[in-house]
Write a protein that binds this DNA or RNA. Structure first.
Length: 304
RNA sequence: GGCCGGGUAGCUCAGUCGGCAGAGCACGCGCCUGAAAAGCGCGGGGUCACCGGAUCGACGCCGGUCCCGGCCA
């Protein structure tokens, strides 16, 4: 018999992890797969709200602590490793419970996405000439379909499209129908979304950031800085960027840093909301306050 | 008490020579295929501290009032 895998998605601070742990303990035959672009880095613990060692001991967690903070990470790499993990879990007769809020990563695992090759040097060269050349016009000339889906001002995505074309000789748009196809997934999976009222999420974010500071977040960042520079990708993590700026010189005060982190986290949660809300395959479970209260409904839905 | 500077969007501030107000951030809505906790687009929002005056017309000029900051007493 082939039982479907499971997934819990949703905005940050909406209680996915706690809920997932309860699900795992109840079901007994699942292993967790973190779908999180920042929990992959060792040493980024407090700021990424990574599951504690005690929690990880209760049930196997995958794709947590699989890269050095000095390493670069990417969707393509995540896709490859996550799919391997799912195959592995399956081979042990268990089910995967995907848990996370990185929307693109969820789709990279679950949808038939093919990521064309990359060459950082080529991309950098394109980025460099973007000062002189109009990348949007350039892309429109060679791949109008791709250009139609990118804002003329979004240099980063324009450069990526041009990079792929230069590397493969094929139009960027030939590599996929886009993210909004929402066709059949590459393996059977129940997609569940947790949803809390916005003011509850905002409060949870504010509380969590204060807890992070109380738990020694600044020390964690300082230690990372002293060990070696965070990679380009790891340095994007919310909180780390802000605290680093504070530590390295005459940056803003810690109070200001805390406020900035709360704001950026809220904005992140908003983008996650936008991302997941579009996916018609996600079944939403709303809770007025405590996310774990949806557990019965969630399990009922999955056993049906 | 006197002198000087300031009161304009939720916040920080622009606003030339008088012609019914702008930016950044925040906030809201949305986009997304190798940085995605990234990147990008659109939008709402103002009794220009208050009162009076000159002017066709005032955020701007004149007079007064109230706040805030600094200096002097």
């Amino acid at each position: 018999m082939t039982r479907a895998h499971l997934a819990i998605v949703g905005p940050t601070a909406s209680g996915k992890s706690a809920l997932a742990l309860e699900v795992a303990c109840t079901l007994g035959d699942v292993e967790l797969v973190s779908i999180d672009s920042m929990q992959v880095y060792r040493g980024l613990d407090i700021g990424t709200a990574k599951p504690s060692p005690a929690e990880q001991a209760q049930v196997p967690h995958h794709l947590v602590d699989v890269a050095e903070p000095t390493d670069e990470w990417s969707v393509a790499r995540f896709q490859q490793e996550a799919r391997a993990v799912v195959v592995d879990i399956e081979a042990r007769g268990k089910r995967a419970l995907l848990v996370g809020g990185t929307g693109l990563y969820v789709q990279a695992v679950v949808d038939p996405l093919t990521f064309p090759p990359e060459d950082r040097a080529v991309r950098e060269a394109i980025l460099t000439r973007s000062a002189e050349h109009d990348l949007y016009a350039e892309l429109t000339a060679v791949d109008p379909d791709a250009a139609a889906g990118i804002e003329p001002s979004n240099t980063r995505r324009l450069a990526r499209a041009l990079e792929v074309i230069e590397l493969t000789g094929r139009p960027f748009s030939s590599f996929g129908t886009g993210l909004q196809t929402y066709g059949p997934t590459v393996f059977p999976v129940h997609l569940a979304g947790v949803w809390l009222p916005r003011d509850v999420v905002h409060q949870r974010i504010a509380d969590r950031v204060v807890e992070m500071f109380d738990a020694g977040f600044v020390d964690e960042v300082r230690a990372l800085r002293d060990t070696g520079a965070l990679s380009r990708t790891a340095a994007q993590a919310i909180g780390y960027r802000e605290v680093l700026e504070h530590l390295d010189g005459n940056g803003p005060s810690l109070d200001a840093v805390l406020d900035a982190i709360v704001i950026r986290t809220r904005q992140f949660a908003r983008r996650q909301r936008m991302w997941f809300r579009r996916d018609p395959r996600i079944v939403w479970f709303g809770a007025p306050e405590n996310p774990c209260s949806v557990l019965p409904a969630l399990l009922a839905s999955w056993s049906a």
